[in-house]
C-alpha cells in the first residue's frame, strides 16, 4: 500500500538496544511517529515486519558478526538514506574499545575460549561506516530525545539537520554549572560531542565522554587548557578511549598533531 508516507525501518545490530528503546521512550510522540510514517520494520516493537524498499533506515549497534555485515549490506541496498544512531553504530561503542586487532583476539579468547563457530563468525566490533556508506550520524549513548525528534521531523520533510559540531561545555555553560575542571575533577566535556544536555555536570558528576569525540574542536586549545589545569594528558586519553571506539585512532592522531 502506497499512502505517500515515508517507509522507515529501524534495525538493531550488536549493542544494548538503548537507542531503539529511546525511540519507544518518546511516549507522547510515539503514536504520532507511527502515524506520520510507514514503519516497515521495528523488531523491538512489532512482530509484523517486512523487508522491502525503504526511504530511511535507522541502524543501531555495532557490526560484530559476519551475519551482521550481510544484514547491514542488505539494508544499505534497500534504503535511500541510512542513518547511524547511537554510539555503537557511529563509533563502534564500548565494545570497540580494543582498537588493536591482536588485543581484541586475545580478549576474545579469554572470554570464549577456543570454541569454533560454524553458524556465523564474530568479527571485531566496528561502526557501520566501516562497511557501508552512511548518510547521517546521530551520536549518543543512548541518543538524546531532542536530537532524535529533531532528526525525525526534518527527515519526514525530506531534509536532514546539520550536525552538532560543539562540545558538551557549550550546553553546560547555558545550564550555568560550575566548571568541574576548576574544581580539579577530570571532566571530558571539552572533548566530547554535545547533545546530552550536559547531564552529568548538571548532577555534579564529571562527563564520561559517552557521545564520543567532538568533531571540529580546537584541540590545541583544549590540550593546553587541560595541561594548564594540571591534568595528566595520558590518563585523559585513556578515559577518552572508553567511549570513542574506532574513532579514537583519528582523534588521537589529531590530538597529537595539535599538541605539538
Amino acid at each position: 500500500m502506497n499512502n505517500g508516507k515515508l517507509k522507515i525501518g529501524i534495525y538493531e545490530l550488536t549493542g544494548c538496544a538503548g537507542d531503539a528503546l529511546l525511540i519507544l521512550d518518546c511516549e507522547k510522540e510515539l503514536l504520532d511517529i507511527f502515524k506520520a510514517v510507514d514503519i516497515q520494520s521495528f523488531l523491538m516493537a512489532s512482530s509484523d515486519n517486512r523487508d522491502g524498499k525503504l526511504d530511511i533506515a535507522l541502524v543501531e549497534g555495532s557490526v560484530s558478526t559476519e551475519r551482521e555485515i550481510e544484514e547491514l549490506k542488505d539494508i544499505r541496498e534497500r534504503a535511500e538514506i541510512v542513518i547511524a544512531i547511537g554510539l555503537c553504530a557511529t563509533v563502534g561503542g564500548i565494545q570497540a574499545r580494543f582498537t588493536d586487532p591482536n588485543e581484541w583476539k586475545k580478549k576474545y579468547k579469554e572470554v570464549y575460549g577456543d570454541i569454533e563457530m560454524t553458524h556465523t563468525k564474530p568479527v571485531q566490533s566496528k561502526p557501520i561506516d566501516a562497511y557501508i556508506k552512511v548518510d547521517y550520524y546521530l551520536p549518543g549513548c543512548p541518543i538524546g530525545k531532542e536530537q532524535f525528534l529533531d532528526l525525525f521531523t526534518r527527515a519526514v520533510k525530506g531534509t536532514l539537520p546539520e550536525r552538532y559540531p560543539r562540545p558538551v561545555c557549550v550546553t553546560c555553560k547555558y545550564n550555568e554549572n560550575d566548571c568541574l575542571l576548576n574544581k580539579g575533577i577530570p571532566c571530558l566535556g571539552p572533548l566530547t560531542a554535545d547533545g546530552c544536555g550536559s547531564i552529568c555536570p548538571n548532577h555534579n558528576v564529571p562527563c564520561f565522554g559517552c557521545w564520543g569525540p567532538v568533531e571540529g574542536a580546537n584541540l590545541t586549545s583544549e590540550y593546553y587548557l587541560l595541561k594548564e589545569k594540571g591534568f595528566d594528558i595520558e590518563s585523559i586519553k585513556k578515559r577518552m578511549a572508553n567511549y570513542s571506539g574506532t574513532k579514537l585512532i583519528d582523534f588521537l592522531k589529531q590530538f597529537k598533531k595539535e599538541s605539538k
Partner: peptide
C-alpha cells in the same frame, strides 16, 4: 555479537 563486556 560478542561484546567482551567483562574485559572492557
Amino acid at each position: 555479537g560478542p561484546r567482551l563486556i567483562e574485559k572492557l
